[in-house]
Amino acid sequence: MLAFILRRVGQSVAVLVTVGLIAFAIFRFAGDPVNQIVSQDTPYEQRVEIRRDLGLDDPFVVQFARYMSRAVTGDFGISYGFRQPVSDLLKERMPATLELAFAATVFALTFGILMGVVSALRRGTALAALLQAVSLVGVSLPTFLIGILLIFLFSVTLGWLPSFGRGDTVRLGWWSTGFLTASGLRALVLPAITLGLFQMTLIMRLVRAEMLEVMRTDYIRFARARGIPTRAIHFSHALKNTLVPVITIAGLQLGAVIAFSIITETVFQWPGMGLLFVQAVQNVDIPIMAAYLMLVAAIFVLINLAVDILYTVVDPRLSLSGGQAT
């Protein structure tokens, strides 16, 4: 187990370095940061000086090495635009993204499993057909469109929910939470649905397929024969056995939810890390872009690691061959 984890950690570091290298190689194509930090009146000589001070004239390998040597000490640099440490900016924005991702995942899991089970057990009914149709919308409509449709309906037409932002937040140490205020919870509803809809659909379809599969197996038939109540068969025997792939997908998707909350955050002006990143790209704020990409890579790596370990807990058979399997 320890060797397995160590090997995974080693691979993770390699992934992070590679991501950083690729990121720095493409930053040079993002445009000129200097023009975004000065006004139209700034003379050329001063622009050249700023360029030099920022180290932008160096080859990208040098820039990368300098960045990495600082990053290992926890120094991710100062944002060009905000003149604040990037780590502070990310720390400020992280709770918003994580809370949104958490809410979206809870929404996706709850409704995904529920709808999956219902559409598997009530196969052929109008309800199942309806749920299938809803899931089709979920996979086929792009996130930004769903977001804008929800805003149009619930904010502009009905006026029930806010169209942007996080509402009022409460500070718990450095963490700012929107879970504890009414306006914070209201603000969470639409973005969480927008972000979680795709995952919900995915989980629903997965649960449905797995459930149909499991319901055909012998042990379910025997359980029926033994006279175990239907409810218990469905939920403690059948559903439990469908959950391994659901955990995998939900786990892997959590990384995607955090990373791809960019679009949802942009549509709802949700003050999270994704929004910070999008604004940084427009302004070629390299320290923010670099730190965000590294962070997202780290999140993916950690989640994959956690899912691997969780597997062995849920299904002990995997840990027996865990030494070899990758």
Binding site: S155, V156, G159, P162, S163, F164, V267, Q269
Partner: peptide, 18 residues
């Protein structure tokens, strides 16, 4: 003052009175 970068959201925020 709030930043709203997305055009549609900004207009929606005005129309909904937020």
């Amino acid at each position: 003052f709030t930043t709203i970068g997305n055009d549609s959201t900004r207009v929606a925020a005005l129309l909904s009175g937020e």
